[in-house]
Design a protein around this nucleic acid. Structure first.
Length: 656
DNA sequence: CAGTGAGCGAGCTTCCGCTTGACTT
């Protein structure tokens, strides 16, 4: 019997079905060996030699692989065709201790054809790729396990820093600082309500809104009320007529099929889900065999899936929805490894048995996939320009609108909200012709202010990280969890705010280690890893070039830097114990808590509670509050603890 | 799942990326 090793158990089952009974297929469930958790595990003196260990959790898996390898005829290592997958194959081969030399096979999609093709062309482990992964692993360990202890010493115990999480926190902290220093600038817009002039009474003549755009050929910027009043007065005594009508047909192409980050963003925007929840639901769909693998950075699609999709569109939607040829999508992300397909349904038959969250996500994936092979939507966008003329000036007013001439792929994956290129909501267009005279019904000057940039939510944060090439499909959700568990940031109404602790850590790291927190740090690392994989650079010099300046800096900071005080937040109340200090909010290991500003002279403290609205404790009727465990996991408890011990992991359902 | 901050100084914390479990009242 031949043995095949893959990473995912679900993939192992699928492969088993394709190959029949002559093969035994086992899953590694990810990496089987790693650096030890409790120590650095890198011998810097000895050319950064890593110490790999099999963790207790992985021992059973490794034992099973070892045992099976002794009984196997041929051994195929079919881990994912990317840097991490190559490393897993290498570690499996090293640990196995088999006399047989295993073959390395790879496929990018789970189809019979791809698997047969892979089996027909067995190769060897690419050691350059393994070297690149080893360099990546060691670098991340050195950064994380050297910076974190410095934070314990200079700020507080238990803190963490790393190549990915620290940049993620930086994004949120810097956005908040931009918002804080933002000065809104006043501007005015003038909107008119116009009506086609037919003479005499004309209650049914078309009315429409038009926005003031130009004065005497110049773009008009109205900065204050005085200017606005002047223009309104001027417009009152103007004559109005339709000056121009410009129509343009625009094709709107469908979106590419989902990668992990796109799926997380869509589920966040359309369903309001966290990336963690999205991945949990996707895992379920994947295990049921309903979707392809849900951790992917690729928009590639298996040819047979595309052909099946085209057949489906042709017979269910008609030929006007079917393009002449299949659509292919290029993966944009530079750092993409493209080991898997895009996320798509494995079959196009509707799954009627699905319900609830599983159905919501499945439908989103199904619609996005089928839509991606459909014809573009055709939108006619129109700009109606109205001229307002008086003895001194000529003004131009604009009315913009868009009409969908053909829905195309939008029949399946419509917009959340129709927005035109200017970002304005679409208005209904009037039926008018050039030269039509108009009557001015209303003139509305509107005071407005420029807005600060919006805070990140999960969707925009993941989008930004991916654009910067920071993090991987398997890490977006965990990274977002980590920075919240560390109390560096918190989410309010889906928007991320930094805590004073997050600001303190970020400011400290930016002062001394701006190079590691640089948005290009990962991109430069990736360039070096590519060079190692390509054989033009070696692992040890790449690591040395980073490490020695880094550790020198770190030792200097360790000697010189003062301990950092984390800012407190005032509440305005005075301390109930000493009466001298005031009550302040501090950020501790379990999130926010109240204490006296005179600590340690006065040790008064109290929990900072966030009341959960619309629910009372089922045991004692007290308020329910949201808290965090030692590990940073949120839970709901009774405000009367420890007198009442009610606690729940899940948000209690609304009552009354 | 019930604590927090400083410093005292036991014993401990920490990274990224690959996978899936199992404990829910």
């Amino acid at each position: 019997m031949d043995l095949i090793i893959v990473e995912s158990p679900t993939k192992a089952n699928t492969l088993g079905r394709f190959l029949g009974g002559d093969f035994m297929v086992l899953a590694t469930m990810g990496h089987i060996r790693d650096l030890p958790e409790k120590k650095l595990g890198v011998d810097v003196e000895a050319d950064f030699e890593p110490e790999y260990v099999v963790s207790a959790k992985k021992k059973e898996t490794v034992d099973r692989i070892k045992k099976s390898s002794k009984e196997a005829g041929k051994i195929y290592l079919a881990t994912d065709p990317d840097r991490e997958g190559e490393a897993i194959a290498y570690h499996v081969a090293s640990v196995m201790g088999s006399k047989l030399k295993p073959s390395r096979i790879t496929f990018h999609e789970i189809t019979k054809h791809a698997i047969d093709e892979a089996m027909a062309h067995p190769g060897e482990i690419n050691m350059n790729l393994v070297e690149a992964q080893t360099a990546r692993r060691i670098l991340d360990r050195l950064v994380g396990y050297k910076l974190s202890p410095l934070l314990w010493k200079k700020i507080r115990r238990g803190l963490s820093a790393g190549r990915v999480q620290s940049v993620t926190v930086r994004l949120i902290v810097e956005r908040e600082k931009e918002i804080e220093k933002f000065v809104p600038i006043e501007y005015w817009e003038v909107e008119t309500l116009l009506q086609k002039f037919l003479g005499g009474e004309m209650p049914d003549a078309p009315k429409f809104l038009a926005k003031l755009a130009k004065k005497n050929g110049q773009k008009l910027e109205i900065r204050n009320q005085t200017e606005a009043d002047g223009i309104v007065a001027d417009l009152q005594k103007a004559g109005y007529e339709i000056f121009n009508i410009e129509k343009k047909e625009v094709k709107r192409n469908p979106y590419p099929p989902f990668t992990t980050s796109m799926m997380q963003q869509a589920a966040s925007n359309r369903l309001g889900w966290s990336s963690k929840k999205t991945m949990q639901v996707a895992q379920g769909l994947y295990e049921e065999g309903l979707i392809t693998y849900h951790r992917t950075d690729s928009t590639n699609l298996a040819e047979e899936a595309v052909m099946g999709c085209r057949d489906y569109i042709g017979s269910n939607f008609g030929s006007e929805y079917l393009p002449e040829g299949p659509r292919f999508y290029k993966t944009k992300s530079r750092s993409a490894q493209e080991a898997h397909e895009a996320i798509r349904p494995t079959e196009l038959e509707k799954k009627d048995f699905l319900a609830g969250d599983a159905k919501k996500l499945y439908d989103l994936i199904w619609n996005r996939f089928v839509a991606c092979q459909m014809n573009p939507a055709i939108v006619e966008s129109t700009v109606v320009t109205t001229q307002a003329v008086n003895e001194n000036n000529i003004y131009l007013l604009e009315t913009r609108g868009a009409i969908e001439k053909f829905n195309g792929w939008r029949v399946l994956y419509g917009q959340v909200e129709e927005i035109d290129e200017e970002g304005d909501k679409i208005e209904r267009l009037p039926e008018v012709n050039i030269g039509d005279e108009l009557k001015l019904l209303e003139l509305k000057p509107m005071q407005k202010f420029t807005l600060p940039p919006p805070r990140f939510n999960e969707a925009s944060l993941i989008k930004t990280l991916e654009e910067l090439g920071i993090g991987r499909p398997s890490t977006y959700a965990p990274t977002i969890s980590t920075i919240q568990e560390r109390n560096y940031v918190e989410k309010q109404n889906k928007a991320f705010f930094p805590t004073p602790l997050g600001v303190a850590v970020n400011d400290f790291l930016m002062e001394y280690f701006a190079d590691v927190l640089d948005f290009q740090f990962t991109a430069k690392m990736e360039d070096n890893l590519d060079a190692i994989a390509g054989g033009t650079l070696k692992r040890v010099p790449v690591l040395a070039e980073f490490y020695y300046p880094f550790i020198k800096k770190l030792e200097g900071v360790d000697r010189v830097a003062q301990r950092v005080a984390v800012q407190t937040e005032a509440t305005g109340e005075s301390c109930p114990k000493c009466q001298q200090g005031s009550v302040v909010i501090r950020v501790g290991r379990f999130g926010k808590f109240l204490s006296c500003s005179r600590f340690p002279e006065c040790d008064w403290r109290a929990p900072f509670v966030q009341k959960v609205e619309g629910f009372k404790c089922p045991k004692c009727g007290g308020d329910v509050v949201y808290k965090k465990t030692k590990k940073g996991k949120g839970f709901y408890g009774c405000v009367n603890y420890p007198k009442c011990d009610f606690a729940s992991w899940r948000k209690p359902a609304k009552q009354g």
